[in-house]
Simulated assay, not measured.
Amino acid sequence: MKKLLLTAFLVGTFSMSYAQSDYYNDYRRSISDINWQTVVADLLLSTTQANQVYALNDRYRNYDSWNRVYVVEPGRWRGDRYSELERILGREKYIVFKKKYYRGENPVIVYGKKNDYKKYRKEQEKYYKERSKYYKKQNKHNHGHHGDWD
């Protein structure tokens, strides 16, 4: 029974880390799918705005730096990124950006279709529920039985 539960935990852990990497891949695609030099030219961004956009794109250069921030809520990157982009561009230019590069849809929705946050939360809750059952059984077994000397 212990081996079965341990296996379930390991599978849960790997499936959660897979979901996490999917979110990171969406984050990277949100940057690489767009030619940002064209965005800067099309929207007539100032040098300061362009530098801020490039800095935003370089904020998390690898999975580890991204994961340190979004380990608990991986879907949060979308809201964070696009609210920051809206702040940099300004409301009017952000609307133009959204229409041209995301066909009028909110970028949060565009990159939310593949990785639904609710799905991730359900997987996370299932993992912790299974983990909790395992530890309750362990504690019941350890506290209810005092060893071989009884």
Rank of each mutant, 00 (worst) to 15 (best):
A50M: 03
W149I: 15
Q138P: 00
E130V: 08
Y127G: 07
V96W: 05
E73H: 09
N62W: 01
K137E: 14
V40A: 13
R76W: 02
G12F: 04
N142L: 12
G75D: 09
L4S: 07
K126M: 11
Q20K: 13
V108W: 03
K133G: 10
N139L: 15
Q37N: 15
K140P: 00
E105A: 13
Y23T: 03
Y102W: 10
M16A: 13
V72R: 08
H143R: 14
D22I: 07
Y27Q: 04
Y27N: 07
D26K: 04
F9D: 03
S46V: 07
Y117C: 00
T47G: 08
V110L: 09
D22V: 10
L4W: 04
V39T: 06
E123V: 03
L44M: 09
M16P: 00
K126E: 01
E73P: 00
M1Q: 08
T47S: 14
G90T: 09
M1S: 13
Y94P: 03
Y102I: 00
G79E: 11
G79N: 13
Y120P: 03
A41M: 09
I31S: 02
V108S: 12
K133T: 13
S30R: 02
T47E: 15
A8D: 01
S30T: 02
D58C: 01
K99G: 14
R61V: 11
Y101R: 07
I95Y: 01
Y70G: 10
E130N: 14
V108F: 08
A55K: 14
R131P: 00
R87K: 11
R87I: 12
